[in-house]
């Protein structure tokens, strides 16, 4: 199951809530304001690293670019919209907002 998160973790507990329900192996995709979670060196980096031990983590590249986020927590992969579709091909979707 693909989990998408579109909220900044600084403003909203969606990321925290979503991670409680993650099963190992389920991919997590940050989109929209959610991508602020994966900027390297912020207060959520440790949590991202913890999730990465069991789950692949992606961020939507156009949303990162739009927000000027260049350096990501190590291990986070980026996808474009077609990559997003690719994840949806492989998984049912759980859109957290």
């Amino acid at each position: 199951m693909l989990h998408t998160i579109n909220k900044s973790p600084f403003e909203n507990n969606t990321f925290e809530t979503c991670t409680r329900f993650l099963l190992p192996g389920d991919p997590v995709l940050f989109i929209e304001d959610g991508v602020y979670a994966v900027q390297s060196g912020n207060k959520f980096t440790h949590e991202i690293e913890r999730v990465l031990k069991t789950n692949p983590v992606f961020a939507l590249r156009p949303d990162l670019d739009a927000r000027g986020i260049g350096t990501l927590a190590e291990g986070v992969e980026t996808v474009d919209y077609e990559g997003f579709v690719g994840l949806v091909e492989e998984h049912q979707v759980n859109s957290w907002f």
Partner: peptide, 10 residues
């Protein structure tokens, strides 16, 4: 989480 994984639509 396990129930979510079983779903077709959420």
């Amino acid at each position: 989480g396990r129930l979510m994984k079983e779903q077709d639509v959420i």
